[in-house]
Design a protein around this nucleic acid. Structure first.
Lengths: 343, 343
DNA sequence: AACCCAATTCAAACCGCTTTGAATTTTCGG
DNA sequence: CCGAAAATTCAAAGCGGTTTGAATTGGGTT
């Protein structure tokens, strides 16, 4: 059905060495020979054994993703959109994607094993924590990697791609303030992750700028899921001094919040304003002429694509310095915002 | 840092053969020797090279998933929940998961290449179509695989795990009929996929049983996304003869539908009844004492786990006959259903 | 002590590719 | 036409395991 290198070489009456070089584009093989080899390879349906190749070269053409199991870090759909983007890019570049889903307590060990056994040429790091040990480990092992997000602000010793979360939330908060809101709630993600911290800081920056005191009573930090948004919004609407606007860290709690608002018979954008960060999840599209939500928009799938490019770049040019990209979000006006109701 | 088999053998003063056999649990090695080998392996931090092992054995201990790119077949979050379940099981069993995200037109070729190059020991097939060529290909190549879903009803020539979609939707429809509804809308998934076809049949079964004529004007078949549910429900509410209840194929359009209902100032369960199939997506939990939606529930993550088990089983016992599991859904009463309003 | 059979252990071949260092063939100026 | 340099090609040695077939060791008999 298909042959190996040796058989191909025999069929051609040429040494394996030359055949191998012809196929891999080495310059010292004559064009005439190369053509013959390529033709015959095609004809005999030759395809090299990746295992043998990996063993011989020590390279695996594979990129690893380690995903902790009970995943509070990576909300499912965010993760899969990122994977979709990265995966396409890997395929185009001829890389395989190896995905390891392991219990949280085996996460580091999994990194270690994947690397020690040379199963991967590079790693993608998701959802960095404030003080992330994975980064230190990867640096120590000298393995190329890209972080989606950042750990500390000032650490440029590794390659990352991040959204300017702080600026983004500052803008959103400012928008609400400019509309006249003085009491703005925050439904943030889990603040053990750096992006959530930066979002809160942006929010606080804008409040401080407008000399509005932050009220911890209307600021929350939980997993970005639909019921979270619903529950908290429900509470907020009953608050003795309810916010007139709420800022959400993801479209999932935003939908929950919307549900609570509608259920209370209120109209979003008139009775309560909502702004959300929107990762452009394909199955929850917030689009249309006038989108449902006013949103800070940044495609997480595009981030996946770009991170993959950066990682492949880093793998193939190990000597290069780390690079960084800080993406600004797009602020899209939807129907969920408006000036506050005057009492 | 870590040694290979040869070095380990030298350190022990024993042949590689014996060391290899000791490590792999062959019976012909004496217990005394085995103990010495294991101890030394531990001490020298020996770990076998997977590449070498794959080359020598021809087995890859890897399971492949091929995902078409512009994925109308596999709604993102459904897919990732399934992956999460399968991935955990793979890890526990010592298998790697290889994920290929490729353009639709390269899908078959990708299967072929993964198999021909021996990169995988088995494949997981998602979202079977009515006449699915992947299944024929895998059977021809004699590669173990499991289908999540089924292609034709009567084909037991391969291993599958499916939800009893027909029965499930029949039950749901019957529930609505029993509540007094006579006009029931359907927001189905894309009917190029077999599961959606079966759901429609179940729905039609129940209608016919109750001698209710089906009305194609209130039956839809699209990608299971939030905006679909919103848009169609919005239309249905304006219909000259609007349905009093609507059946949704997934919680995503169900949420869209709910949004439309609430936006119209109606109360779900009183003014309009909604029933949905619920895959128990972790980030959209439809739980609580009284769940938001009356739902047909079946965990897609659990399906992923079980499919993975079945696949590993098939890989390790190639001679066994194909197995099948048809799961019944759980019918959970939520607050989104009630008798129709009497005019 | 000699012998046989079973239990262990081993040297070497093999999996399929890359790469080193040497050998062979071409090319070309003189 | 010759010899040296340049261009090609090749045999063999890895990469790090598994597995075959033979060799060695050990225990039990006579």
């Amino acid at each position: 059905m298909s042959v190996n290198l040796k058989q191909l070489a025999e069929a051609l009456g040429i040494s394996q060495t030359t055949v191998s070089r012809a196929l891999n584009g080495f310059p010292e093989v004559s064009e005439k020979t190369r053509r013959k080899v390529l033709d015959m390879a095609q004809q005999l349906n030759y395809s090299p054994s990746p295992h043998a190749k990996k063993l011989a070269t020590g390279k695996s053409k594979t990129i690893g993703h380690v995903v902790p199991q009970s995943d509070h870090m990576m909300i499912n759909p965010l993760f899969s959109d990122f994977i979709a983007g990265a995966g396409e890019t890997y395929s185009e570049a001829g890389y395989d994607m190896l995905m390891s889903i392991v219990p949280r307590d085996q996460e580091e060990n999994t990194y270690y094993k994947l690397i020690a056994s040379k199963r991967v040429d590079g790693m993608m790091v998701h959802a960095p924590l404030v003080n992330d040990t994975r980064i230190a480990l990867l640096q120590k092992l000298n393995m190329p990697f890209v972080v989606h997000g950042r750990s500390a602000d000032d650490d440029d010793s590794y390659t990352w791609l991040d959204v300017n979360n702080r600026r983004s939330f500052e803008r959103a908060t400012r928008l609400l303030i400019d509309l006249g809101h003085r009491r703005i709630g925050l439904l943030n993600g889990l603040e053990s992750m750096t992006f959530a911290q930066r979002r809160r800081m942006g929010y606080l920056d804008a409040l401080e700028d407008a000399r509005i005191d932050a009220d911890p009573g209307i600021m929350f930090s939980e997993d970005m899921m639909e019921p979270y948004g619903y529950r908290r919004m429900h509470e907020l609407l009953k608050h003795k001094n309810p916010p007139t606007a709420v800022l959400c860290s993801s479209i999932l709690p935003a939908m929950g919040a919307l549900r609570a608002v509608q259920e209370a018979g209120l109209e979003p954008g008139r009775d309560v304003s909502l702004v959300t960060h929107d990762d452009m999840l394909s199955f929850l599209s917030n689009s249309g002429d006038i989108p449902m939500f006013t949103a800070l928009r940044s495609s997480i799938k595009a981030a996946g694509e770009r991170c993959a490019e950066m990682l492949i770049e880093a793998i193939e040019n190990p000597q290069r310095d780390p690079t960084h990209e800080l993406w600004e979000t797009e602020l899209v006006l939807g129907s969920s915002t408006g000036p506050p109701q005057r009492p």
